[in-house]
Write a protein that binds this DNA or RNA. Structure first.
Length: 280
DNA sequence: CTCCAGGAGTCAT
DNA sequence: ATGACTCATGGA
């Protein structure tokens, strides 16, 4: 069996996958099947850590994907000692959360799908997108599908997108795919922009507002000085931070002013905690 | 039946 | 700048 083991108290496969940053994963009997781009791995808990099973040529990819080169003890300790009781509880509950290193374009399309939608449906739609337009790959005899290329997505029809359940978001996806297919997506150039400059660029895209842009910034471009505000974080803000603002842009700015470069990490702790306690 | 889901575009003040 | 209305879809 090929792969590698991770023993780090600040890495939990469950916490990391279920804190809302990734849609392409499933769980069965404690075994997590994860797809990123065109690569697949299985992850499961073992006696003293987590075992990641993947092709030997993908080991470096998944080490980086799971952000295993980052030391989370400092981030965790800052959350614990922040003075906010809810953040302390959240960090303890989601101690094993890490911010994944995911592909910017995959995040962009995925989070456009996410708007005004629920997580099971989002996962289902993205899966249909991949099985219909993605290239078929193989993992030791098992077939799976990569996230589709932009050219494939640009050449699909509007009716196809509607048929997989995208609803009114179908136009957003097709328009964006065509635009990128024609004009490109200069990841190098975008990566050099400041967080605010990059935010402005993302907001030019139809179907991308502040929330989706913040998710792309954080999960696709690893801008941890961004703080996505959705319905869950909105609740945390009102209930635990005594917040009075109604505008989610202002709420997001409030948190970034407060937490600076730790914003994204803390947002994941809070999201994970709030959703886990209210979903049961 | 209504309400909601990791919101955003549009148009009216 | 702010507020409402609307936008598909499916599950609760």
């Amino acid at each position: 069996m090929i792969g590698f083991k991770v023993s780090d108290k600040f890495f939990s496969i469950k916490d990391t996958l279920t804190c809302g940053q990734i849609f392409r994963f499933t769980e069965s009997d404690g075994v997590y099947r994860v797809i990123s781009g065109d690569k697949l791995c299985y992850a499961r808990n073992c006696l003293d850590g987590v075992y990641i099973e993947c092709k030997d040529t993908d080991i470096d990819y998944f080490r980086h994907f799971f952000d295993l080169e980052t030391d989370y003890s400092e981030i965790y300790n800052k959350a614990i000692s922040s003075g906010f009781e809810i953040l302390k509880k959240s960090a303890k509950e989601g101690k094993g959360v890490r911010i994944l290193n995911q592909n910017p374009l995959e995040m962009l399309f995925s989070f456009i799908v996410s708007q005004n939608n629920n997580i099971p449906r989002i996962k289902s739609i993205i899966e249909k997108l991949c099985t219909n337009l993605g290239e078929e790959r193989e993992f030791f005899g098992e077939k799976y599908f990569a996230f589709p290329s932009v050219s494939k997505m640009a050449n699909a029809t509007l009716d196809f997108y509607k048929s997989i359940g995208l609803g009114y978001r179908a136009e957003y996806i097709l328009t964006l795919a065509k635009d990128i297919n024609n004009n490109g997506f200069d990841e190098e150039k975008l990566s050099k922009l400041s967080t605010n400059e990059l935010l402005e660029e993302l907001l030019k895209i139809k179907g991308v507002g502040k929330k989706v842009a913040d998710c792309v910034l954080l999960f696709g471009f690893r801008r941890t000085d961004s703080f996505p505000v959705d319905t869950w974080i909105d609740k945390v803000y009102k209930e635990n931070f005594n917040g009075k603002e109604k505008d989610r842009k202002k709420i997001s700015n409030y948190f970034v002013d407060l937490f600076k470069e730790d914003s994204g990490y803390f947002q994941q702790y809070l999201f994970y905690y709030k959703r886990s306690i209210e979903n049961k």
